[in-house]
């Protein structure tokens, strides 16, 4: 598979993160001797770039490898293969101290605001921990900085001695955000940060993320399964299916001119808040279930559910992830470059 080359434009935005052929397989072991009998191919050969200051949306259904991709990029998991270039260094090869130093520039927000804060630490302890372990601030400076961070995410600094269980889901997510911001990162991986929140709170958190992006020049990788929310926040969107990226382009192109049959099916499932349009909306219903990533189909991953599947081609050959239009990548045999 060729790496997608960046669109040849005159004004080249700076690439902050370059993921190449990233793979993460989880071994399946059986029996008394823990024999290696197979792999769950959670992330299977994924390549993309993230530009400075943008938000890259990463969407796909449950179990398609979105979260694993995010966690492998930030090295919570060691990648099976591939490289992750971040500010000129390959994250996949860093170890120990260097890795720790790199992580200051790359942070993560987690999905479940109830599980992502240590229940036995106060807010001050949680948000101040990154400052403490990187020796950025002494005790009193830390308190000041935490107060600043809490204000930044819209929380009252007077609450810093409280414990996580005293806060609501939205407030907790803000605390998690404050913790991620403590080290002044350049890139934040948002792993479904709003999926566990009420709709009204979702909007608040998303708006906060956008404000902070503008204010601090942050770059986001925004992992989600809510297509309309991704459309709202992302500049470009990557669609994942069974461990692979099937389509990647800027937001507007994706939503107006989806090329991959899977993207088309996904978008057809988004309800339209207009009863007249909604009535004429044609849904593409995919047949069957998501195949097991431990035993992916031959050829194109999607061929077992594809409405335009061609026998002899799709089930034999793996489609390449190619740039069909400038800045528009797609992995489908039936989509030809222009």
């Amino acid at each position: 598979m060729t790496a997608p080359t960046v669109a040849t434009q005159t004004e080249e935005p700076e690439v902050i993160l370059r993921v190449r052929n990233l793979k993460k397989y989880f071994p399946i072991r059986r029996g008394v001797f823990q024999r290696h009998v197979g792999d769950v191919k959670a992330v299977d050969d994924v390549s993309f770039d993230v530009y400075k200051g943008e938000t890259l949306g990463l969407v796909g259904e449950s179990g398609c490898g979105k979260t694993t991709t995010g966690r492998t990029i930030i090295r919570l998991y060691d990648p099976t293969a591939g490289s992750v270039y971040f500010q000129g260094r390959d994250m996949a090869e860093l170890k120990g101290k260097e890795l720790r130093a790199m992580r200051r520039k790359m942070q993560m927000i987690f999905q479940d605001p109830y599980a992502s804060l240590n229940p036995r630490m106060s807010v001050l302890g949680i948000v101040g921990e990154p400052l403490e372990i990187h020796h950025i601030a002494n005790r009193s400076e830390r308190k000041e900085r935490v107060a600043e961070l809490l204000k930044l995410v819209g929380l009252n600094p007077a609450f810093m001695n409280r414990y996580p269980h005293e806060f609501s889901g939205g407030q907790r997510q803000r605390i998690g955000l404050a913790r991620a911001l403590a080290l002044n990162p350049d890139l934040i991986i948002c792993d479904e940060p709003i999926s566990a929140l009420d709709v009204s709170i979702q909007a608040q958190v998303v708006n906060l993320l956008e404000e902070l992006q503008e204010q601090l020049g942050l770059t986001y990788i925004f992992i989600a399964h809510d297509l309309s929310m991704v459309r709202h926040i992302s500049k470009r969107v990557a669609v994942m299916y069974l461990g692979k990226i099937v389509e990647l382009t800027d937001r507007d192109t994706l939503y107006t001119n989806p090329l991959h049959p899977y993207t088309q099916a996904l978008l057809s499932a988004v309800p339209v808040p207009d009863p007249f349009i909604e009535e004429t909306r044609k849904r593409i219903i995919l047949k069957g279930d998501l195949p097991s990533p431990a035993n992916p189909p031959s050829g194109c991953n999607f061929h077992t559910r594809c409405p335009v599947f061609q026998k002899g081609l799709c089930d034999v050959q793996d489609p390449e992830f190619i740039e069909v239009e400038p800045g528009h990548f797609c992995a489908c045999h039936l989509v030809k470059p222009q």
Binding site: Q107, S116, P130, I133
Partner: peptide, 8 residues
């Protein structure tokens, strides 16, 4: 996981 990401 969050603590790992921070570099603890």
């Amino acid at each position: 996981l969050a603590a790992k990401v921070i570099g603890v």
